[in-house]
Design a protein around this nucleic acid. Structure first.
Length: 485
RNA sequence: GGCCCGUUGGAGAAACGGUUAACUCAUUUGCCUUUCACGCAAACAUUCACGGGUUCGAACCCCGUACGGGUCACCA
């Protein structure tokens, strides 16, 4: 049995989008599950679309999610180079070899000839298919025209005959009529290969056994197979993937401004959560487990369970999953993740570790943090009605008594840096006043935060704010209440 | 338009011809609770795009229709 080899072959055209990342994930899983190799190849034959720095984005992204490749531009193996533009010389030779084998031919037609045929076909109302007059050129003539430097391309030759069938691991057996296949350009007039050609040559010369890619390639696969056949090469196993959609009609794409991997990370999603979530887009595990580490995915993954239909990317579920990951972290790790968000959001000096402790149980994405903790720095001019909570039965009198009692605690507190002491004192209050917990804690929390929802409550927030600020806010709250008639 | 592919609740999905169509997110409700969140519990598809057919029996098999996507470049 040959060693399984898959490849991720992105074009360096900008950001890594989610659909692409999922393809890389599945390629990785297919390889690793079989103890095979996962290879990175950069496809940069379209010079016009190159974007500076995108190769680094590819490296960084794969690294961040743990999709470590066995061979790649920066990790050469035996079948390099791993950047398509550096492989240029070989394509020409392969193209001419194919011409000799009868699988391709030289074509001198320029666009006007093709356009002419297309128009004629449209006028006649028949489907257009380019009929290449260069098929019938005399080999001698071809040779001299090429030698004289005349512009030419090399096109695939589709010989009339039987239909072509192939098997896809996801979509099953697919059959297309050979007659409808286009005689695509293999080698452009600038001497560069087209994607269609380079892809096949690269996959074969790099020993790729399993081709995993988006299903938009499903319909051109027969042409690639013809190439394999004409060279006498073994066809790879095909695994075509359904697209990842943004909604029912539209694919997720960076052109539409949809979130890229780095956008999500910047918003505070964990790479691990992202990879876990996208694994579930188009693939379903056998049991009901949904949270997987990469290692577990390698074990659980199965090509048989890849779906044929598109999956819509649901940010809500990603949020949930991200929250699960955050909660599962150690308090120290979570705190470290929060730190950068505090840097700009919290200027007041306070116990940030305690803030993280409160945040860990309720945060879904890290970027929510600044808004969640803004009350620490900012004292909002809140509506006095915030004090009156129907369930807590907190009327004006109760609130005033609770706040007043809290004031005494604050005044008499010996050490504001002792959280346990502070909490012990505050928690004595309900019993002392003969109130329910909520009747004391709710007014305190409201006065001191000015917000309806906060991480932490009466037992934490004053401690964070410190004596001076706590007194100021509590007094302000009392004023607000007293101003009511 | 030709060809290829798809269609199970708002989203991801299970089921692989046989009792009340798993599970997760979202939503709603209840419990817990100092708020929110977390956690726990429950509700949510009289039905599997639609119409025929095969079968004792169909979401699962067959045919057709509709809708959606892909592809038909010297782009990848």
């Amino acid at each position: 049995m040959k060693k399984v080899r898959t490849r991720f072959a992105p074009s360096p055209t900008g950001y890594m989008h989610i659909g692409n990342l999922r393809t890389a994930l599945y390629e990785y899983l297919v390889a690793k599950q079989a103890g095979g190799d996962f290879i990175l190849r950069i496809e940069d034959t379209d010079q016009a679309r190159l974007v500076e720095g995108s190769v680094d984005i590819i490296y960084n992204t794969l690294n961040a999610v743990g999709l470590h490749y066995d061979e790649g531009p920066d990790k050469p193996g035996n079948v390099g180079p791993y950047v398509q533009s550096q492989r240029l010389p070989m394509y020409k030779d392969y193209a001419w070899e194919l011409v000799k084998k009868g699988g391709a031919h030289v074509c001198f037609c320029d666009e006007t000839i093709i356009a002419g045929q297309r128009e004629a076909a449209e006028r006649a109302g028949v489907p257009f298919k380019f009929n290449d007059p260069c098929h019938f050129l005399d080999p001698k003539v071809i040779e001299s025209r090429v030698a004289s430097g005349e512009a030419h391309v090399i096109r695939q030759t589709i010989k009339p005959g039987t239909s072509t069938v192939f098997h896809d691991e996801v979509y099953g057996d697919i059959e297309v009529e050979r007659e409808i296949l286009d005689e695509q350009v293999l080698l452009k007039s600038d001497g560069f290969p087209t994607y269609n050609f380079a892809n096949v040559i690269d996959d074969h010369t790099m020993g790729i056994t399993h081709v995993v890619r988006g299903n938009e390639y499903l319909s051109s696969t027969p042409k690639y197979n013809l190439l394999y056949d004409d060279y006498g090469w073994e066809r790879p196993v095909y695994i075509h993937l359904p697209p990842v959609m943004k909604d029912e009609q539209h694919k997720l794409s960076k052109r539409n401004g949809d979130a890229s991997f780095q956008d999500l990370v910047a918003k505070g999603y964990l790479p691990q959560a992202i990879i876990n979530y996208i694994a579930l887009l188009g693939w379903a595990p056998e049991g009901t487990q949904e949270l997987f580490t990469l290692e577990e995915l390698i074990q659980a993954f199965s090509v048989k369970r890849i779906s044929k239909s598109p999956a819509i990317f649901d940010i809500e579920k990603l949020k949930w999953m991200n929250g699960m990951y955050l909660r599962a972290m150690s308090p120290e790790d979570f705190h470290a993740l929060c730190l950068p968000f505090y840097a700009t959001a919290i200027q007041r000096k306070c116990d940030l570790k305690e803030v993280s402790k409160m945040l860990q149980q309720r945060t879904t994405i890290l970027s929510e943090i600044p808004e969640a903790v803004d009350f620490i720095d900012t004292f909002y001019d809140y509506d006095v009605n915030l004090f009156f909570h129907p369930k807590m039965k907190t009327d004006k009198a109760i609130c005033l008594r609770a706040l007043d009692a809290s004031l005494h605690v604050y005044e008499e507190l010996e050490d504001w840096n002792n959280l346990e002491l502070f909490q012990a004192r505050i928690s004595e209050l309900p019993a002392k006043l003969g109130f329910k917990n909520g009747q004391v804690y709710w007014p305190i929390r409201t006065a001191v935060s000015g917000k309806a929802f906060t991480p932490g409550g009466a037992l934490e927030i004053p401690y964070l704010l410190g004596k001076e600020e706590t007194l100021k806010r509590t007094l302000a709250g009392i004023e607000k209440l007293k101003a009511l008639d």
